[in-house]
């Protein structure tokens, strides 16, 4: 489903060129659970941004379901993000003035879905993350774990194929972090492709496939059958 070939990403920082990704070849199949690991500055987030169509490779190709995303015009990228990809961030990125339900509804508002359908889908997504009773709470009235579960509900509500999670437990204690990971794994078990960026080995070891980056290169790509807890 995901196919990267010879992907480079070069940033211009002042006069210097910074190679965030060098010659990355990667293929990820639908339904996989992948952990992308590596020290900070190794290019994990850059890779995730490219996979999420937030960023485009400087060189090389990124095909998503056969579509050359890197070659698309910038005006076509939002559509891919809207329909194919769900993002989960370390810092949740909830809109503080909106309730949990309002945050989950947000992508559908901009996608122009009718109100009735939006409410129905919000209800289902919140139920899936176990937050139905907290639907009318604003983010500042939710715990960290609840906030991240709200963000996950928002990420899945448009029915994407891929869920991209950037350090999803980075701001959580281990109990609610574990809860969030189990929730993500359940989504994966239901068929969603899950790609998690983390530098936490405990979380990385739960993934069936581990990709390790260093200095923008893939230095390790291992599959561990049957490692799901």
């Amino acid at each position: 489903m995901i196919a990267l070939s010879h992907v480079e990403r070069v940033y211009q920082v002042g006069d210097e060129e910074v190679h965030a990704l060098r010659d990355v070849d990667l293929a990820i199949e639908a339904g996989e659970h992948v952990a992308i690991m590596g020290p900070s500055g190794s290019g994990k987030s850059t890779l995730l941004n490219i996979l999420g169509a937030l960023d485009r490779p400087t060189a090389g190709t990124y095909r998503l379901d056969g579509l050359d995303v890197g070659a698309l015009g910038e005006d076509r990228l939002p559509e891919i993000r809207r329909h194919q990809i769900g993002f989960v961030f370390q810092s949740f990125h909830l809109v503080p003035r909106l309730t949990a339900a309002g945050n989950v509804e947000l992508p559908m508002v901009f996608a122009g879905l009718p109100r009735r359908e939006r409410l129905e889908r919000v209800g289902r997504a919140l139920a899936a993350v176990g937050l139905t009773p907290r639907a009318t709470h604003r983010p500042d009235q939710l715990s960290g774990g609840e906030r991240q579960r709200t963000a996950i509900a928002r990420a899945i509500v448009m029915g994407p194929k891929i869920l991209l999670a950037d350090e999803p437990t980075g701001n959580l204690d281990s109990a609610s972090g574990g809860e969030v990971i189990r929730l993500l794994e359940r989504m994966n078990a239901e068929g969603l492709t899950l790609i998690v960026v983390t530098h936490d080995p405990a979380i990385g070891s739960r993934a069936r496939r581990r990709i390790r980056l260093a200095d923008g290169r893939v230095v390790e790509d291992v599959r561990q059958p049957g490692s799901v807890a």
Partner: peptide
């Protein structure tokens, strides 16, 4: 940034 990640257009 979030809106853009959610697929909101320019």
């Amino acid at each position: 940034g979030l809106l853009k990640a959610l697929g909101v257009t320019r």
